[in-house]
Design a binder for these strands. Structure first.
Length: 842
RNA sequence: GCUCCUGUAGCCCAAUCGGCAGAGGCAGACGGCUUAAACCCGUCCCAGUGUGGGUUCGAUUCCCACCAGGAGCACCA
């Protein structure tokens, strides 16, 4: 492990100073054990929810139970706990819950390997992580602990699914879906990254399956609009990613009459376009090969060619299909449409550069104004007609810019000469009045595919009956519990392992009582994590997923800590759930969290930690070596929360030395408890009060690293006061050290408790009140004014903070050094920024 | 290819509104403490802010271009 060798000298000393009268060293590990049991006994972190204090909900993304906690957990938990503890010191009733996202594939795969039930691995890991979390001293309210794989929890996931279904927000449809051949299950669009499975990296293929979806598209506009509530409180990066993902685009539908060459009648072919102004330039049409439109339109003599092309398309991987370098392939369908603007007869092709599930699955191809269509036209020798005049020096192919419309007139409408925006408006109006189309808004966002063909997830509470069809399991029968399957029962077969549990699958139809089959898919685990923050509010509530009255007292969460990798996954889904629950009257909040912080990653030597690089750092080992407080301090102090921490660049050994230094301050205080600081050494008091004031501002701004630096300054000033100032008996020293213990408790809780006790107080420092700042001590008595000549500093003046501009100018001009530099030249201009600066221009 | 973010001391990072470039830490040097070493204490060293322009009395901060690193998007009609 890099870093351990050169810092071995800093490792924690064990208690070996028995014969000494005074403890010379601070035994970090003994302090950890001691305070853990005190906190367990006092239970100071339980949310009261009694209205005695203002409520604050501190939320952090709950862990998935894979092995023990790692360095990444160490970072996010340290940061998150600073806020939770800060709010507690500020007098808030803090809800700081913990739970586990405990359904999911890794446990299932482990169960297959180990020939056991996934619950064994899952709950064993949870215990390991719970123990580590307690050791790490995160100020969680353990009484609210939950696991999404508990029947008591997933009962309500099922209940919510049924409410969504009642609202028309959960439905089943057949479609071409993303299939991960490795995990043997379908995936939502959000879980496919660059054509590969977001979880395992396998190249995703397409399958036609009937699956359950959540109608998140119905909330596309709301998800966009409500970003105004998050602006400035959520990272721009996340909002940008969500905006891109939702992909709103404004345009129009246009209907093209289809000319049934083979004598069949066809409905008009409807297309979505963002450039209705280019309608006159539409020289052919393209439909997605997988779209039912293609199979419907194809003529008998082209059918064989089309089917061969469709088969080719489906062989191609997502990655190949997404490549823009790929030549534009396609096949003529033997059908023609009529361009509604020109009346021209244009051919209809099928080509895989058109997507079946975006827009209508068909486009009007305008090669002159769209490069993709241009490429296709060139490849297949189709006509190109410019309808926007490119600039005279335009050297490209398709012209996408603004310009005057040309070749765009018929008996009813004339766009020629209009710029793009004006032409769009004019033609949209014409389409609408002539019944050929309408203005519309289209989104890139697709519905959320939630079925999964795996075992260790929440069963979908639906029964399929031969007579009644899809029947919801009645609420009183929930939960639909998982059948007990383990080991080889779980080997993926392409269908859910639940299908093989015949006793479980066979059931009675809740409606007609006849024989029926249970739905054998489980839900995407992102469903489980879309509402866990609400269950925390009333974890034992038995009449619903949560008590709305209680949830409304806490929600929205004041802050959410978690990784940016969930920008268009969890963070989109849980906004969606929140909005649906809001709409059905179960929640007042429109957004789940007021603010969001994406912590950086913990890396090592410039790289992500990985087994293959051999640069892994183990959180447990770091804690063994340096102690919990030093590791937490290192995480918090390393830099801004959103920046990566390179473990090779930081110094847990240095953090531990700092903690020793702070700890000794408490032993050097020799004034009695309760002594009035008012008569104490004023310069130190000024530092103390300034520090409290600044730390408050800094924590509010999530600038934890700078807050720690301020605290270090206070510690340095206090040391100096003890050793070479007024000495340890001065009341100001006690004040400074008490404040230090309080502020330190946010980051290094054990050390802070040790100090608090040494200072003669009862535990726990975590529950004390934020120190009151005396504003008089913040006012500077004098400030240094810089006098510049030509922008260069030439003199410094000690002046009163409230000095006037005129007075300051007079003082500056009178300064001997300034006069020497000015050297009799006329002063052309004087800029005065009282009280800190005067600049003379000569 | 397009968009956004970030470049400050050997290293990690600070620097309200444009106003003295350094708060804090790491590493390093020297001194004190020590039988000695470590711990500890003290003192010191170290950059003109990626590069080039512009605006300004004054630029790390604002604007433009470029370089480097990171992130996001990339057949969505």
């Amino acid at each position: 492990m890099p870093g351990a060798d050169d810092t071995a000298g800093d490792t924690v000393s064990t208690a070996q100073t028995g014969e000494q009268t005074e403890p010379a060293t601070y035994d970090v590990h003994a302090a950890q054990d001691k305070w853990r049991s005190v906190w367990d006994a006092l239970d100071p972190f339980r949310a009261l929810d009694d209205g005695s204090k203002p409520r604050r909900y501190a939320l952090t993304m709950f862990p998935y139970p894979s092995g023990d906690l790692h360095m990444g957990h160490g970072e996010v938990l340290a940061l998150h706990d600073v806020l939770a503890r800060y709010w507690r010191l500020r007098g808030c009733d803090v809800l700081n819950p913990i739970g586990w996202d405990s359904f999911g594939l890794p446990a299932e795969n482990a169960a297959i390997r180990r020939r056991e039930h996934p619950a064994v691995y899952t709950y064993a890991n949870i215990e390991v992580q719970a123990e580590s979390l307690r050791r790490y001293a995160v100020s969680f309210d353990w009484s609210r602990r939950l696991h999404t794989s508990d029947p008591d929890y997933y009962r309500w996931t099922q209940w919510l699914f049924l409410r969504f279904r009642e609202q028309g927000l959960a439905y089943r449809k057949a479609s071409y879906v993303n299939w991960c051949p490795n995990d043997q299950t379908v995936l939502a669009n959000e879980q496919v990254v660059a054509g590969a499975c977001e979880r395992c990296g396998a190249v995703v293929t397409k399958r036609e399956l009937t699956q359950w979806y959540f109608r998140i598209t119905a909330y596309a506009q709301r998800l966009l609009d409500d970003m105004s509530l998050l602006e400035g409180h959520w990272p721009d990066r996340v909002l940008t990613m969500q905006r891109n993902w939702i992909g709103r685009s404004e345009g129009a539908f246009a209907d093209f009459a289809v000319d049934g060459a083979d004598g069949r009648r066809h409905d008009p072919l409807r297309v979505f376009t963002t450039r209705p102004d280019t309608l006159f330039g539409a020289t052919f049409m393209v439909v997605a090969p997988e779209s039912p439109l293609a199979a419907d339109l194809v003529s008998d003599d082209q059918r064989a060619a089309f089917e061969a092309y469709l088969a080719d398309t489906q062989r191609a991987t997502e990655i190949e299909r997404l490549s823009t370098e790929r030549p534009k392939t396609g096949v003529f369908l033997g059908a023609y449409a009529t361009n509604p603007a020109t009346g021209g007869r244009i051919p209809i092709w099928a080509a895989d550069y058109v997507l079946a599930d975006y827009g209508t699955g068909a486009i009007m191809a305008v090669p002159a104004q769209d490069q993709r269509d241009w490429d296709f036209a060139v490849a297949h020798d189709l006509p190109i007609v410019r309808t926007v005049q490119p600039p005279s020096d335009f050297a490209g192919e398709a012209y996408l810019g603004d310009g005057a419309a040309i070749n765009s007139a018929n008996d009813e409408i004339n766009l020629d000469g209009l710029d793009v925006d004006a032409a769009k408006a004019r033609i949209a109006e014409w389409l609408e009045t002539s019944g050929l189309g309408e203005r519309t808004v289209n989104y890139r966002l697709r519905d959320w595919l939630l079925s999964r063909q795996r075992y260790w997830g929440c069963p979908i509470p639906i029964v399929h009956c031969g007579d009644c069809g899809e029947v919801p399991v009645p609420d009183y029968q929930l939960p639909v519990e998982l059948p007990h399957l383990s080991g080889t029962d779980l080997v993926p077969q392409g269908t859910s392992p639940l299908a093989a549990a015949t006793d479980w699958v066979q059931t009675r139809c809740p409606q007609c009582g006849g024989p029926a089959r249970r739905d054998t898919d489980t839900m995407d685990t992102f469903v489980d994590s879309s509402w866990y923050f609400l269950r925390y509010c009333s974890p034992n509530y038995a009449d619903g997923p949560y008590d709305p009255e209680v949830a409304n007292r806490w929600m929205p969460a004041a802050n959410y800590f978690g990784g940016a990798e969930h920008a268009v996954l969890h963070l989109l889904y849980f906004r969606f759930f929140t909005k649906v629950l809001h709409d059905i009257g179960m929640l007042d909040a429109a957004e789940p969290t007021e603010s969001l912080v994406n912590q950086g990653q913990v890396i090592n030597q410039g790289n992500r930690m990985s087994k293959s690089r051999g640069n892994g750092v183990d959180l447990g080992e770091q804690i063994d070596n340096f102690g919990v407080d030093a590791v937490r301090l290192t995480m918090v102090f390393s830099g801004p929360p959103e920046d990566d921490v390179d473990w090779a660049d930081v110094s847990p050994g240095g953090s531990l030395r700092f903690l020793h230094r702070v700890w000794r301050l408490a032993h050097d205080v020799i004034s009695p408890v309760g002594v009035d600081a008012i008569d104490g050494h004023e310069p130190l008091r000024r530092v103390t009060h300034r520090t409290v004031h600044d730390v408050e501002q800094l924590i509010e701004g999530r600038r934890f690293n700078v807050a720690v630096a301020r605290l270090m300054e206070l510690v340095n000033a206090t040391r100096k006061a003890i050793d070479s100032g007024p000495g340890g008996a001065d009341p100001a020293v006690r004040e400074a050290v008490e404040v230090t213990a309080q502020l330190l408790s946010m980051v290094a809780p054990h050390t802070a408790e040790e100090m608090w006790e040494t200072l003669g107080h009862q535990p726990t420092v975590a529950c004390t009140d934020w120190p009151t700042v005396d504003p008089a001590l913040l006012v500077e008595q004098s400030v240094t004014c810089v006098v510049q000549v030509q922008g260069k500093v030439r003199a410094r003046l000690e002046v009163a903070p409230d000095v006037g501009d005129a007075e300051l100018e007079r003082l500056a001009l009178a300064d001997e050094q300034v006069q020497r530099v000015v050297d009799g030249r006329p002063v052309r201009r004087v800029i005065v920024r009282a009280p800190s600066l005067v600049n003379l221009v000569v």
